[in-house]
C-alpha cells in the first residue's frame, strides 16, 4: 500500500510548525499505524532528514502514550482503538492521511507530534489517589464490594490517561478524564473518606491547567480508546454538587509548582 501523509512538523516548542507532505510506499496492510510511521522515519533518516517525532511505548494499546490525531479523529477512525493498534488495512490504498498532535492549550507541543501531557499528571497529583498506606493485598472479601459497583469502578479505572478525550473535545475539556479519575474511587469503600476533597481538588486542578468546560458534545467518549462512557461526567457533576452543598472546601490547592515532580 502507498500513502500520502500530511504531517505536523515543529522542531521545538518555541518555533512555529507547519504541515509537511510525505510519500510512504510499500506499506503492509498488517502494519500498525506506528509501524507505518517507522517506515517513513527510516526513509527520512536514509535521505538525511530529521525523523518525525511521535510518542509511543507499549504498542499494545494499554499505556496511553500514542497521541495522534488522524484525519481529524484522535487515535484514528476505528472506535475503541489506540493509534498503535490501528492497522493500515483500515485505510484505502493511495489515501492522503493527515496526522496532527493533540491540540489543547494545556498540551503544548514539544516536538512534531509529541505534546506535553503533564497537565493530566498534575490533575491526578491534586488528589486522584487514596492517601492511606494500603499495605499488601487484603484478604478476599474482607471489604465487601457489590459486583455492580466493582464493575463500574473498573470501567472508570480503565482510563489510560492518553488525553484523546481532550483532543477530541471541541472545547479541549478534560472532563471525561477527571470523571474517570474520580469515579473509580467514588464507587469503592476505600475512596469514600477523601471523596469530597478529591472531587473539588481535581476539578480545580483541571480548571487551573487551562482545559475547557464540558458542553455535552460527547465527542470524548467517541474518541476514548477504552470507551469510558459520558455517564461518569454526570456522576462527577453530582459529586461536585454534593461536595459544594455539604462541607467541601474550595481553593485549597497548593501552588502549581509544588505539584511538579
Amino acid at each position: 500500500m502507498n500513502f500520502t501523509l500530511v504531517v505536523w512538523r515543529q522542531a521545538r516548542a518555541e518555533e512555529t510548525g507547519r504541515m509537511v507532505e510525505y510519500r510512504v510506499e510499500d506499506v503492509s496492510p498488517d502494519m500498525s499505524f506506528l509501524e507505518m510511521l517507522d517506515v517513513l522515519n527510516e526513509d527520512l533518516i536514509v535521505s538525511g532528514e530529521e525523523p518525525v517525532a511521535f510518542d509511543h511505548d507499549c504498542r499494545e494499546g494499554i499505556c496511553g502514550m500514542c497521541s495522534l490525531v488522524i484525519d481529524g479523529v484522535p487515535h484514528g477512525p476505528e472506535r475503541a482503538t489506540t493509534a498503535c493498534q490501528l492497522h493500515m488495512r483500515h485505510f484505502k490504498d493511495g489515501a492522503t492521511i493527515t496526522i496532527e498532535p493533540w491540540r489543547a492549550k494545556a498540551f503544548p507541543v514539544i516536538r512534531d507530534l509529541v505534546v506535553d501531557r503533564r497537565a493530566l499528571d498534575r490533575v491526578v497529583q491534586a488528589g486522584g489517589y487514596v492517601s492511606i498506606n494500603t499495605g499488601s493485598a487484603p484478604d478476599a472479601n474482607s471489604i465487601p464490594v457489590a459486583k455492580h459497583d466493582a464493575d463500574v469502578a473498573f470501567q472508570a479505572a480503565e482510563c489510560i490517561g492518553c488525553g484523546a478525550c481532550v483532543a477530541a473535545c471541541p472545547n479541549a475539556s478534560a472532563m471525561l478524564f477527571v470523571a474517570a479519575k474520580t469515579q473509580h474511587f467514588a464507587r469503592l469503600p476505600q475512596g469514600q473518606p477523601e471523596r469530597t476533597r478529591r472531587t473539588i481538588n481535581l476539578v480545580e486542578a483541571m480548571d487551573r491547567e487551562g482545559f475547557g468546560a464540558c458542553t455535552n458534545h460527547y465527542e470524548c467518549a467517541a474518541a476514548c480508546p477504552k470507551e469510558i462512557p459520558v455517564r461518569f461526567i454526570s456522576d462527577l457533576n453530582r459529586d461536585f454538587i454534593k461536595a459544594a452543598a455539604h462541607h467541601g472546601r474550595f481553593g485549597t490547592l497548593p501552588p502549581q509548582g509544588d505539584l511538579e515532580e
Binding site: 500530511v6 492549550k105 477530541a168 475547557g212 465527542e219
Partner: peptide, 15 residues
C-alpha cells in the same frame, strides 16, 4: 482552551 486549531478540522463523531 485550543489556541491552535486542527488543520484537518475535528471530524464530528457523536456530537
Amino acid at each position: 482552551a485550543r489556541p491552535i486549531r486542527y488543520a484537518a478540522g475535528l471530524r464530528s463523531q457523536d456530537s
